[in-house]
């Protein structure tokens, strides 16, 4: 055997596959970035206030709630699932927090309310995880069920009313700022950093990618599949709960329906940012990027005085485009 010859042959072959494998995925995410630039740059020229510090802060403030549920959804999608219950959890967590603070002032009760809201999210996430991982119910159906269950509990607990919040310490969360930056923005980036490290550097994160990438291979390799799936749903529930608490602080009330429809943004954000709906591919940074893109578009359209009704239409098209790019990148056929 002529070693030199075989070695060069082996060397050139994988090189080709490697570039072929990645050029498409890269191209797809590049397209999204270019589209983003095409939107932001002209807008900044026409309306300079668009890139003012004040406006950037207001964009980040707008997206901080979306980002938290988008991160949680990102983890679930990476693990190969989907979580439709996030919007209802946002409402439920707000109601729970508001109820805890009824007639109770002081920072202590504010903290208990935050924990309570997050806990409500964890319970729903646990339910999702059990249904999917232990009862083998498809995630789409299981979380569609808990979407309704969480919304229903929100209604029952609040008796269908909005529960106003008077606890000043709690309301300060969304008013207070350090160095001109409101607290929810710090929370968003802190959660992002934590999740980014968890997914890229810890065992749980690796297992999430492995289970999402090939659940059969992960099982053969002896991975604790069920624990991984449950963990992903619990993370999503907890973050939706936290988002609900922050939103309640912003609107100074707990309302069961505040998060209704948020699941659309939650799913769109990671997908726009390159997390594959098939699972196993992408990064949580993609979810952050996706949510920034959606928030910027919303904000820009507002500045341009476009009716919010159109914003829905435009967001819808962007989501379809992003999923299309995802299928192109992964060479999957939908039919």
């Amino acid at each position: 055997m002529s070693t030199a010859h075989t070695e060069t042959a082996a060397r050139s072959r994988p090189q080709k596959t490697f570039s072929a494998l990645f050029s498409r995925a890269r191209l797809a995410s590049l397209v999204v970035w270019i589209a983003f630039a095409c939107y932001v740059v002209p807008l900044a020229i026409v309306e300079p206030q668009f890139i003012s510090f004040y406006n950037i802060i207001s964009i980040l403030m707008l997206i901080s709630v979306y980002a938290l549920i988008g991160f949680g959804e990102g983890v679930v999608v990476l693990s190969g699932g989907i979580d439709l219950s996030v919007g209802s959890v946002v409402g439920l967590a707000g109601v729970v927090a508001a109820l805890i603070m009824q007639g109770n002032t002081g920072i202590g009760w504010a903290l208990i309310a935050i924990v309570g809201g997050v806990f409500a999210g964890i319970v729903i996430g646990m339910l999702n995880g059990i249904a999917v991982a232990l009862l083998n119910i498809p995630a789409f159906v299981a979380t569609l069920g808990t979407l309704s269950i969480a919304l229903g509990f929100g209604y029952v607990l609040s008796n269908g009313q909005q529960i106003s919040i008077n606890n000043m310490a709690f309301l300060d969360i969304s008013v207070y700022s350090w160095f001109g930056i409101p607290i929810p923005i710090y929370i968003m980036f802190a959660v992002f950093l934590l999740l980014w490290l968890t997914l890229s550097r810890t065992r749980l994160g690796r297992y999430v990618y492995a289970v999402g990438g090939n659940i059969q291979a992960a099982f053969v390799a002896g991975l604790p599949i069920r624990r991984v799936l449950i963990s992903a749903f619990v993370i999503s529930g907890a973050l939706s709960g936290l988002a609900g608490v922050l939103l309640a602080s912003q609107i100074t009330a707990g309302i069961a329906t505040t998060g209704t429809g948020y699941e659309l943004i939650a799913i769109a954000a990671p997908v726009i940012g390159g997390i594959s709906l098939a699972g196993g591919r992408g990064s949580i940074a993609g979810a952050l990027f996706g949510v920034i893109l959606l928030g910027t578009i919303d904000n820009g359209l507002t500045i341009l005085n476009v009716s919010p009704f159109y914003q829905h239409i435009i967001s819808g098209f962007i989501i379809i485009l992003a999923v299309y790019l995802d299928t192109v990148a992964n060479r999957r056929k939908l039919v």
């Binding site: 990618y209 492995a210 990438g213 196993g280 591919r281």
Partner: peptide, 16 residues
């Protein structure tokens, strides 16, 4: 189908 997680890298697969 049942052995490798194709979306992970080589080290991640061997160590899984």
């Amino acid at each position: 189908e049942a052995g490798l997680v194709l979306s992970l890298d080589i080290a991640q697969n061997t160590i899984l």
